[in-house]
Design a protein around this nucleic acid. Sequence first.
DNA 1: AGTTATATTTCACTGGACGCAATTTTGCAA
DNA 2: TTGCAAAATTGCGTCCAGTGAAATATAACT
Lengths: 213, 213
Amino acid sequence: MVFMTLRERKRLRTRQAILTAATDLFERHGYTETTLDDIAAAAEISKRAIFSYFASKEDLLFPESDARIGAAIGAIAARQPGDGPVQVLLRAMTTSAQESDDLTGRRAALRLRLMRTVPAVRGRALQHQFDAQREIARHLAAVFPADLSPISAAALTGAFIGAVTGVLDLFFEEQEPPQDPVELRATLLRVTQMALTPWLDTSSGERDLSSDI
Amino acid sequence: MVFMTLRERKRLRTRQAILTAATDLFERHGYTETTLDDIAAAAEISKRAIFSYFASKEDLLFPESDARIGAAIGAIAARQPGDGPVQVLLRAMTTSAQESDDLTGRRAALRLRLMRTVPAVRGRALQHQFDAQREIARHLAAVFPADLSPISAAALTGAFIGAVTGVLDLFFEEQEPPQDPVELRATLLRVTQMALTPWLDTSSGERDLSSDI
DNA sequence: AGTTATATTTCACTGGACGCAATTTTGCAA
DNA sequence: TTGCAAAATTGCGTCCAGTGAAATATAACT
């Protein structure tokens, strides 16, 4: 966006200031230990102003959730002619894991860590994931009206995401999420592969995810 | 338990009083509109005492979540000799939907309604569901060490529950959850059937869930 | 009855969220 | 450059969930 009024640019800057201040303090002093007053002070803004940028304290950890959904449905829209629903879902997952910076960056690792320690954060994460899932299912059904009823689309999408989430949780129970963005992204793709290979074997068309890394 | 100290009996009574007061007020005035002070007053107890029974306001809606998990892992333990992982999972879902009063009763319908309107409630519900999923996956892997790695168990369980949850959400988007417990339970089983039939066709052994109704 | 253990109440306090009015900042036009 | 309307920001104040600690009450045990 080259054309932005000065107002919008400044707003973006303070928004970014809030985000960096928040993640910074979260990393150094912990999530619950950091108050909104602290963040406001660090961002040189009033506490009240934070709520004009983010709806809640938790949302400071999910600043780009819309973009992630957007990437996924974009991948669905830009499907290859020969692909079936399963392939499309798969590609939507991997590309959305790559395009949006939401899965990389230092905020991603922080979020993964906080998800397992702060209940409120986990709850918000699951909510976001669920909303994304509903949206994806809706678009998938719209794109394959012949092959998928809305119900089948919901079931298939839920199964996919559920499988990946389940394996991800198990995986990060014993293994710390890597700090390095590149490594983190590779790990996520590997876990996706682990979660979904049984599928790809039995149902339709083998495909190696590692080609996407 | 016929033999219970007076203390335990009284404690159970007040616990029940809190629950009925809470669900009552939630139904009549709404969740966010009802304060903990209201509930405390209705239960004739101090607000502070509520927290010695329940950890949070949301948890007033999930009083028996442990029992639900217990029923599920009980069903896994008491599996039929010939059943594979898929059948066991299926039976665990249906029986846990029947044994625990958590899915029936007027609190279940209320909860389903609030899950779609109050974000905090939805978050808590997803958290409970996720915890249950992890527990179930762990037990499933323990019971089928030959057929399932811990990872496959996590993926399979996540896929199952994810599919059911996704379809459930879609279903209740247009259709109000029925108030009548019997009808509600039947609906849940029907939705489960809808979500999982594609599976049962392709993978292993057809089975009609309606025999469980 | 007296003693110990466990609930419950009371009170004071923190922190997140939000409504509202006053005030400052900014974009833009005369 | 100045003036003005719109938008952003601030500084209150309020509400409510949740916590800590001390005081009080109540059951259990001997």
